[in-house]
Amino acid sequence: MTDAIAITTVPVNLGDRSYDILIGAGLIDQAGYEIAKRAKSVRVAIVSDETVAGLHLDRLTRSLTAARIDSTPILVAPGERSKGFTTLETVTNAILSARLERGDIVIAFGGGVIGDLAGFAAGIARRGMGFIQMPTSLLAQVDSSVGGKTGINTAHGKNLVGVFYQPQLVLADTDVLDTLTPREFRAGYAEVAKYGLIDRPDFFAWLEKNWRGIFDGGPERTEAIAVSCQSKADVVARDERETGDRALLNLGHTFGHALETATHYDSGRLVHGEGVAIGMVLAHQFSAKMNLASPDDAARVEAHLRQVGLPVSMGDIPGQLPSAGKLMDYIAQDKKVARGALTFILTRGIGQSFVAKDVPPSAVLSFLQEKHPI
């Protein structure tokens, strides 16, 4: 075991499938110890991308070896384009080729793409293996590593194929966030802000005052991650499979996913958190257009996200976007569509988001044409 480190624990309460989120600096070096405490005589596959592996894989492997856990690395190319059927097949075959058994563990060691991809592979390999999330991006630490959503993208849209599959443990090492590019960190921050905008107006106000400490790696960073994880854990405990208010976690995502599809998941143009940032601004602006909320709230959201350096409009995306009508086609493919009726997460103000069903497509199209008049 390594020297004791300060760990913040956030529980996810799901009955006999409950698990802990551990948050702390240096958790990669503690990973073997934490895993060995919870799982005896296991072997692991470490699914990671080449960038993360180059920075952190040796530390994780040493930690596992010290705990007498054999590991097999499985590396994929970085970026959203690895979230597809081809890479899923490669990862699944590598797990089987390593002769890992159902009781062994797949570790997702990377950002949101790796978590979604490796979690899906763990859920289908041998009809379900052990699964641990070790998120290395801010976005993954506060959002995608928690709650059991896994999946891949298709030509029809983002995350349309996948399974709900909960991890056994989440290990969020806050030290690794210092190796992110400023753009990656900002993209993750969009998901932090989302929790305030859903139902924690006091948290959003706190972020407006303390965001610099989060970016600079002060104690505010751990606090923001813990609050975000607790927010998501509370929602997941109430609605694991998104039949009710878990849909609130999709604030900004219906617009954002359409923009990601429109840019063909080209990270040079748009990454997920940036799409969410633009989507949250659009959701607040659309809510104001529908006379549900004050335009002042939309302006406040836009101002804060712009202040931290995030894109806030479709015009901030490099290159040409398809027409508003084509964006509507992408929205119609979204998972939040039921029997052709549009469902959006709208708001009555900061921290007052709600699930709006049967949103008129004509109103959405008119709004998109106003914001993107081509």
Rank of each mutant, 00 (worst) to 15 (best):
A303M: 00
G196Q: 05
H284E: 05
V12Q: 09
P322A: 05
G128S: 03
V364R: 04
A66C: 03
H304K: 03
D29Q: 15
S63A: 10
T51A: 06
S323Y: 10
T92Q: 13
V113I: 15
L57N: 11
N159C: 09
K335G: 03
D70K: 13
G54M: 02
D58A: 15
G147V: 00
E220D: 08
A341V: 08
R300T: 13
E34Y: 13
P11A: 08
N13D: 12
V91M: 08
P11V: 13
R59N: 11
K40Q: 11
R62A: 15
R17V: 06
M328W: 11
V312E: 05
L117V: 01
D297M: 01
D104R: 07
Q166H: 08
A190E: 05
I345Y: 10
V301F: 02
A288T: 02
I152D: 08
L27W: 06
P167H: 06
G130H: 05
A121G: 00
I374W: 14
V106W: 02
G15Y: 08
R306C: 01
D20M: 06
D199G: 14
L346G: 09
S18A: 12
V113D: 08
I69T: 12
Q352N: 12
V76R: 01
A233T: 14
G111K: 00
G147A: 04
T136N: 07
A298I: 10
